[in-house]
Structures are given as C-alpha cells and as structure tokens.
Simulated assay, not measured.
Amino acid sequence: MNKILLEFEKPFWEPNSSYIQLVWEGSSPLTEPQKNLKKNWMTKLSGFVVLEPPEQLGHVLCGFIAGEESEYMESLSDEEVLSTMTSLLRQFTGNPELPPPMSILRSKWHSQPYTYGSYSYVAVGSSGSDIDSLAEPLPKDMDAAKPLQVLFAGEATERNFYSTTHGALMSGRREAQRIIDRYPEPGTAVSKAKL
C-alpha cells in the first residue's frame, strides 16, 4: 500500500469535497489482474482524499495504490508518476488544460528494506495468538527478579486493531503500562488511568 500526494496551486475540485472517486470503465482494476503493468498500473487508484485544512496543508490530494501496481509505481521516477497523474486527472475531469500538480510526494514501502510492504496482516494459517506471541516481552518469563530487556509495540502486536494507526498507539500504551506495573515508584500506587 502506497500513498501518492499531489500538491496543486489551486484546487480544481468543488469546495467542501472530501474525496474524488475514480470510476473505471470495463473490468474492475481492483479484482482482475492487469496484464500490462506499464500501461495499466494507475488503474489500481480508486480515488483521492482531499487533505484538510488547506490553510495548513495547501491544496493536496492523497491517492492510495496497492498490490503489484503499487510495486511497479515505486520503480518509476517522480517525473513519470507526476506525468501519469496529470494525464489521469485530465482524463477524468475532461479538462485537457488542467494544470499539473506543483509537486509530488509518495511513499515507497515495498522498497524499504525494513518493511517490504506497509503494514501487517494475518496470513492464511495464522491466528490472533500469533499476534499475541509477537507482543510478548523478553524475557518471556515474567519472574520479578529478572528485568525486562525488550518490549514490543507496533500495530503488528495489537490483536484487535492490527494494521491500523490506533493499534500502534494502543500497543505503545500497553507496553508503557507494562513498565509502570512492573517498576512502580516505591510508595506510590500504580494507576492504569494515567495512560
């Protein structure tokens, strides 16, 4: 999953728009594999979120792309992606004079050596107990005499909200509470409500 952010000098979309949906004719690019990635990679874009507020962020659209098309997009230069996005938006708006975006910013999660993707998922044959195992601190044995050495947080360790930002936040709070519970200051009561 990657994001493509496009900044425009001024918006071409209607005021108060929050999303620009792209509806493709013919076969569904979301369900049927594309034979020619070079020609069709952009069809995996279903639309763009209008980022708010423009006073702080400028006039920015955020598109989402996933799968092989997303991986292919990472192999292209910024100029190639910008040119394709300009052509795409001109096609969908019917305005051949639509100015190109002023700038582009995009993620390249598949190319990152420490992620090779964007977020976790439960694979076929896996279960929530695998996520629980990822969340176990080291050493696993919670003997009070042994200090905790490594704690694991992140969306991949949150059983109920894996693959989400709030799952990552919740896991960080979980591990902070684990430290508070394990090492309370002498003479103080530990309160879970602090987090």
Results as ranks from 00 to 15, higher is better:
residue 50 V to A: 05
residue 90 R to M: 12
residue 91 Q to F: 11
residue 98 L to R: 03
residue 63 G to M: 05
residue 97 E to P: 00
residue 95 N to V: 06
residue 73 M to G: 03
residue 94 G to F: 02
residue 40 N to K: 09
residue 24 W to F: 12
residue 36 N to F: 02
residue 37 L to C: 03
residue 20 I to H: 01
residue 81 V to G: 01
residue 103 S to Q: 10
residue 58 G to K: 02
residue 42 M to W: 14
residue 86 T to W: 09
residue 31 T to M: 10
residue 113 P to D: 08
residue 36 N to S: 12
residue 29 P to E: 10
residue 121 Y to P: 00
residue 41 W to R: 00
residue 114 Y to P: 04
residue 51 L to C: 12
residue 88 L to S: 01
residue 55 E to A: 14
residue 111 S to L: 12
residue 91 Q to P: 00
residue 56 Q to G: 05
residue 68 E to P: 04
residue 87 S to L: 11
residue 34 Q to P: 04
residue 65 I to N: 01
residue 74 E to W: 02
residue 35 K to Q: 13
residue 79 E to V: 05
residue 64 F to M: 12
residue 83 S to E: 15
residue 114 Y to T: 14
residue 121 Y to F: 12
residue 61 L to M: 07
residue 100 P to G: 09
residue 104 I to T: 07
residue 51 L to F: 11
residue 78 D to T: 04
residue 74 E to C: 06
residue 21 Q to I: 07
residue 36 N to M: 11
residue 48 F to Q: 02
residue 80 E to K: 13
residue 89 L to W: 01
residue 110 H to L: 03
residue 80 E to M: 12
residue 87 S to Y: 10
residue 66 A to W: 03
residue 105 L to H: 11
residue 12 F to W: 14
residue 82 L to W: 09
residue 73 M to R: 05
residue 99 P to A: 05
residue 47 G to D: 05
residue 49 V to E: 15
residue 38 K to F: 07
residue 85 M to L: 15
residue 42 M to A: 13
residue 43 T to F: 10
